[in-house]
Each structure stands twice: as C-alpha cells, then as structure tokens.
Amino acid sequence: MDGSWQRRFVLEGTSELNTSKMAKRARAAELRLGLDASSADAADVRSTTVIEPPRGWDFFPLREVWAYRELMYFLAWRDVKLRYKQTALGVVWVALQPIALAAMFTIVFSRFLSAPSAGLPYPAFVLAGLVPWQFFAAALGRSSLSLVANEHLLTKIYFPRIMIPLASVLTASIDMLFTLAVLGAVLIYYGIGLPTVALFLPLLVALLLGAAMGIGLLLSALNVRYRDIQAIVPFLTQIWLFATPIAYAATLVPADWRWLYDLNPMVGIVDGFRWAITGGAFPSSLFSSAAVITVLVIVSIVYFRRAERQFADVV
C-alpha cells in the first residue's frame, strides 16, 4: 500500500464510489434527517435537535449510524493505516499470522498428537477455524479498548458512540479479507473444490460479525467504567481459543458436555465454516450459536445504549 493509493482513497475514492444512485440515496437520507441546509425551504426542512434527560430504553440508532457511516469508515481506515506505518512488511503481517499459527498447530496437533481433522488435510482444517477465530479475537481485542482509546473524541464531539466499537470490528474484518484469501489459496493448493453449501459462507460471516459486535460492544462499554476488562480480554481470548474447535474437531468433545460447549457461539461458526468448505452433515451447533448470538447482540446493544449516556462523564 503506497501513499498515493491511500490518498486517492481518502479524497478521490469517495467520489468514485458516489455513483449517482448512491448519491441519490444519500441525499434522500439527508433530507429525511433534515441535514440538508442548502435546499430552498431549508427553514421548513430543518431538523430540530431536542436535548433532554435520557429515559427509558433505546435500541440500535439505525438512522444516526447511517448518517455517520463515513465516520466509521474513516476510523477504521485510520486504524489500518496507523498499524502499518513504519513497518517493513505492512499488510503482509495480516496474512503471516494465520499461516504461522496454522503451521505450528499442524506440527503439534497433527504430527505429534494425530488429532482427527474431519476428512480435510490438517492445515486446511485448522485454517478454516483460524480465519473466523482470528477475526473474532482481533475484533474483541480492538473493540474492548476502543472507547477508552478514543476518550478525546468522546469528551469533545458528538456522534453516535456505537460508531467507535463498530469501526474496530470493521478494521478486523478488513484483515479477514486477507486471511480469507490465504484460506482460498490453501484450498486451491490441496485441490479442494467448494461444495454448493459454500454459498452459505456470507451468512456465516454475517453471524460471525454479529458475534464479534455483540461481545465487542459489551466489553467496550464495560471497559469505560471498569478498566479490569482490559486485563481480562487477553486471557479470556486465550481460554476461548481452547473452548473452540480450532486445533481439534468438535467431535472430540464428550456428548454429555456438548450442550454446554455449543453455547459458545464460536463453536457453531467454526463448525459452519468447515461444513461450508467440505459439505457433509449440517452442524447442529449452528442453531444454538445463532440463538446465542441473537440474544447477545440484543443484550449488548441495549446495554451499550444505556451505558453510553455516562461515557463522557465517566471515561
């Protein structure tokens, strides 16, 4: 990524994206939100901001998030950009991490321990788990710290607070594009053709985004008040790694424990990823995961919206 590419992305790329259809849509949204000052009868279209003590419960601020979507892109872009400033290999690091881990797991679990790998070559098997997992771990790590790290924004400017952890999740998903490419390359290397159920992959990714968002929002909001979260997250991620069938197949888990094990939303997602790549029997753990993630997303948004009222005062 050389500088000129990014510059174009910032200042010109946006206009390229602004095809007339998008512009029209955005304009319609502006008008709906009353953000447009230039229209002839601005006085009538102008929105009124009402400032009152908060009460009751709020859910996802869909309209505001839409209005501020550019901010989310920019925050994510800033994080991506900053991470690779003054690094020699730049974005290659994103691809190297899962490759190195997959190699390590292959040696330890496949060579030494001969773990079963559900009919896939072990490196492909472990990578199919590592791709969603690494995204999840990165999203968790980033978003849990995000609000505190952007304290100066919280106390100086108004925007939907939810944009900050969402931007962290977005940053992690940009990385996932690269790791998915690595997975694709490995599949091609082993000559593994994708079955028709691979069409479910986007759905699985959506579920994965939901899981990361749910937990990320919760942790980021908690971290504003209790910095303990900062200490917990790294080792929570480590434990979670072992509670997820990445190095091993979920079939190794005793049947008596399966119900508990399946409550881990990442179990269904990792099983789902492997199923989408190999075909075979539909993993029932996907149902419980989807249910857990739905609850998680609802709870975390409600909690976040409740907690955000205090952010500027507490952080």
């Binding site: 953000l35 000052a37 601005a42 102008r46 929105s47 009124t48 901001t49 009402v50 400032i51 009152e52 003590p53 908060p54 919280l154 106390t155 100086k156 400017i157 108004y158 009222r309 500027a312 005062d313």
Partner: peptide
C-alpha cells in the same frame, strides 16, 4: 457540552433548529 449532546442534561430541555457544529 450539553448543547452539543456530548453529555446529557440531568433536567430541563433544549431545542436547536438546524445542523449543529461544535
């Protein structure tokens, strides 16, 4: 800060017409 919605008021009410920049 209250007028620019960075922090909520504990009581009372304010209304601002139009786009607010702070």
């Amino acid at each position: 800060k209250v007028l620019s919605r960075i922090t909520h008021p504990t009581e009372g009410r304010a209304e601002i017409r139009g786009r607010v920049g702070s």
